[in-house]
């Protein structure tokens, strides 16, 4: 039993107060960002300690953020990029993980060694040569350039391999006896039985790529291809970026999707990202 599990509310108060104080500090940027997005710029300048707006200015701020830069396009690009990355990562990693976990073939140990080696390399390392490569191919500023470098996830291979290893061999034998080929075993037998690993990997991947700034900053040149992270920087570079209210409105719009997803499925998110800690 947890020490102090049966404390009364009064006895529990110091603990709650300390945690509450920390929570207020952690949440402060969200709170001020949100309330500043409801105020006209003049009010932000005159008195930033009071939260509630005297004049409700949200429509103007959010309108400006949507008008000055293609904010909805950024959000759409973010969704497309995250979806494509997750799709290709799964497509490549799952069959390989199955081959590593359940099949015996020459070269298996070598490939696993390479995967472990890959786990040690942060994605910033291959960025320069990849950039040069994409530039040569004339593919900068395209979805291909945004998605392709992440289509292989060594972390995904590693995670799925661990999950598949714990599945009973009988499951696979039975499917073979039913006449299933290895490819359909991968997608119709093994994968559905490794759902926790799959959701953990999906949340990790989506959060990582929605929030990524480094790579989009390198390959994206036009507003039309910008992801949400880059969109914030583009908006700030515009003249409207000096308008704190509108800037905060833009920040709220790009932050909200992931925060809402997180609040809807907190347990899965925390589990996914904590298990993914290995690759950070």
């Amino acid at each position: 039993m947890t020490p102090g599990a049966n404390r009364t509310l009064i006895q529990d108060l110091p603990r709650l107060a300390l945690l509450g104080l920390g929570a207020v500090i952690v949440l402060a940027p969200y709170v001020w960002m949100f309330f500043a997005s409801l105020k006209p710029g003049s009010e932000v300048f005159s008195n930033s300690l009071s939260l509630l707006p005297e004049r409700f200015y949200a429509l103007e701020n959010y309108g400006k953020a949507l008008r000055e830069v293609p904010m909805l396009r950024f959000l759409f690009n973010g969704v497309v990029v995250c979806a494509l990355i997750l799709f290709f990562q799964t497509l490549f990693a799952v069959p390989a993980a199955y081959a590593l976990a359940k099949l015996r073939w020459r070269g298996r140990e070598v490939l696993f060694g390479l995967v472990m080696l890959g786990l040690l390399i942060p994605y910033h390392v291959p960025a320069l040569p990849l950039y040069v490569g994409f530039a040569r191919l004339g593919l900068l500023d395209s979805f291909t350039a945004l998605v392709a470098p992440f289509s292989i996830s060594v972390f995904g291979i590693f995670l799925f391999r661990q999950a598949f290893r714990s599945l009973p061999d009988e499951l696979i034998h039975a499917a073979r006896i039913d006449g299933m080929g290895e490819m359909s075993i991968v997608w119709r037998v093994v994968m559905p039985n490794a759902w926790p690993a799959a959701t953990a990997f999906a949340t990790f991947s989506i959060v990582a790529h929605w929030n990524d700034l480094f790579w989009p900053l390198i390959v994206v040149q036009s507003h039309g291809m910008a992801t949400p992270a880059l969109g914030v920087l583009f908006f700030r570079a515009e003249e409207a970026g000096n308008d704190v209210g509108a800037l905060m409105a833009a920040a709220v719009m790009v932050t909200a999707p992931m925060v809402i997803l997180f609040l809807l499925a907190q347990r899965r998110f925390i589990q996914g990202i904590a298990t993914a800690g290995l690759k950070g």
Binding site: L27, N211, A229, V232, L233, R236, M248, V252, F269, I273
Partner: peptide, 21 residues
């Protein structure tokens, strides 16, 4: 959930909020 929120938030946007703070 509250303490974990910054981990999933778009850091560039939150940096902008910090800049204001």
């Amino acid at each position: 959930a509250i303490y974990f929120l910054p981990v999933v938030s778009l850091l560039v946007a939150m940096a902008t909020a910090w800049q204001y703070l």
